[in-house]
Amino acid sequence: MISVSIVLALVASAVAQAQAPLYSSPYHYSDGHTDRVNFTRLFSSELIFSDTWAKESWNGLVSFARADPVRCFGSDAGMKYDVAVLGAPFDTATSYRPGARFGPNGIRQGSRRLGVDRINVFHKIRVSDLIDVADCGDVPMTFVDSKVALRQLEIANAELLSREASHSFKASSIAKDGKFHPRVLTLGGDHTITLPLLRGVAEIYGPVSVIHFDSHLDTWKPKAMSGPWLPDEEIPVTHGSYFWYAHNEGLLAPNTSNIHVGIRGAINDWGDYENDREVGFVISHAEDIEEVGYKGIVKRIREVVGDNPVYISLDIDVIDPGMAPATGTPEIGGFTTREIKKILMGLEGLKIVGADIVEVAPAYDTQDEITSIAAANIGWDILALMAKTPLTA
């Protein structure tokens, strides 16, 4: 039989626990009451952004690699930065599996373990030591009209590019006006978004050499069809024809100084390769890596683009679907994530004026988020390349 003294002791312990503060820490979060937590203090931005523990464990607003979330088109429009991360939630010009409109969110989710303020051991730098990166959120792109949606992105991108970067250098800029402008890393979105992005880049730097990582050419010339379109109707741009439009608009560097890397998709006939050459591209196939290794691919890229300003456009389907299944048009036989990292590292020193990562469709991903994680790490490495090489003449 339990003694009265033991019962009284248990009751006293329970009462004491019920009256104890809900949270106890050296930050003194309690507002003086024993039954409440001062959540205003506990979740304050001061602690989130300055306290090491809070910053490392914080799981609130998700930005790319924990870059500062900025209202670039609102109250923070006057803030300066060197690279703007911009989401382009668009997939209404895709040909197979839709879902890339959710790519920007997926890539940001995949970047949660990264940080612009953490050391990239592969590149041996901390991005935030060299450049200021801001996450500008997503462009509000309508899903009912592709032409209008792409116009929305074009306007937003052009606005960011027209501003002044936070860092300048004694040497002159390669920009046409001689000034230092922010660069934009765009998270797609289907690959059609590259066309309006190139329009903005060409306005600042002139025609650029494109390094296009993809399993498909994306230079197909639009052809009129007897069914959907009337004889006088314009055929809309898609994620398979945007480079054809870019060439016709004079956005691509001349003299065949653009290159596809990782090509392995089917074509309609060999005339597609002739058309691709006319658009201004050289082709490096995915299987080339078995013959020449990643160093051979890097050598070919650098031979093609020379000293031109460079735009990197990376379709996540350049990675083998075993490592990146969540994409609209997967093709077997792609690069591994290690191979793409080595190829990107070999591009150090190129004047990268902008970049995009596209065709991530999280709905097709595994529960491990491996595609989103792969895309995020690729973006982090591209930021490292930008940080290492300023756009000086």
Rank of each mutant, 00 (worst) to 15 (best):
S30D: 12
S25M: 00
A54P: 10
N38H: 03
N59Y: 12
V62F: 06
S25A: 04
Q17S: 12
V15K: 07
Y27L: 12
F64N: 00
F39M: 10
R41G: 14
A18G: 04
Q19P: 01
E56W: 05
P21Q: 01
S44L: 04
G32H: 00
E56P: 03
F49P: 11
A54Y: 15
H33F: 08
P21T: 01
I48G: 05
W53C: 06
W58D: 12
R41P: 05
Y23E: 10
Q19S: 08
A20L: 02
T40E: 14
Y27A: 12
Y29W: 07
S44V: 04
D31Q: 05
A54M: 15
V15M: 10
R36V: 13
L22F: 04
S45F: 13
A20D: 03
P26Y: 08
L42H: 03
S63H: 02
F39Y: 12
I48N: 07
T52N: 04
V37P: 00
Y29L: 06
T52I: 03
I48L: 11
V62P: 04
T52R: 05
R41A: 11
S57E: 09
Q17I: 13
W53N: 09
Y29C: 05
G60L: 05
R41H: 12
E56R: 09
A54D: 15
V37M: 01
F39P: 03
L47D: 07
P21D: 02
L22E: 05
